[in-house]
Amino acid sequence: MNRLESIPVDVQNTASLTGNLLPLLHELHHALQTYAATGATHSIDLNSLPMAPEEDAQLEQLLGGGEVRAQLQALGNSEITETAIPGVWRVTHRNADGAVVARLLEITDCPAILKTQHQDLADGVQRLETLISEGS
C-alpha cells in the first residue's frame, strides 16, 4: 500500500458541495420533534444521501459527541454513539474487514440494536443452567 500511495497522483477535489446538509438538519429537527411528541422513532441512511466529504465532516462536527459511546462486536465492529443532541444517535456498522457497511442516524432514546435481543435470551438461560450444573 505504501508503494501505491507513493505514486504522485494529484487528486484535487473541486467537486461542488451537494447542498444536502441543511435539508438533512431539517429532517433531523422534524424527526426529533415528532419523537418528543409521539414517540415515533426514525432512522436516516447516510449512504443513501450523496454528500461531499467536507459536508460529512461538517455534519460530524455539528452533531458532536454526547454522553454515550458504545462498541458492538457482532460480525465486525460497530460504533453506536449518542451525539451532542440528545435523542440523535450515530450508528456505524463495519464488517470484519473494518469496511463501513452501513451509516445511520437514529432518532430514539436507545438504538434497538444496543438492547439485549430477546431471541438470544433463551441461549443465555441455557448457558447459565449449564454453568450451574457443572458447578454443582
Partner: peptide, 8 residues
C-alpha cells in the same frame, strides 16, 4: 451469528 449480528 447472534441476533444483533443478524440485525446489523
Amino acid at each position: 451469528v447472534t441476533r444483533r449480528g443478524f440485525l446489523k
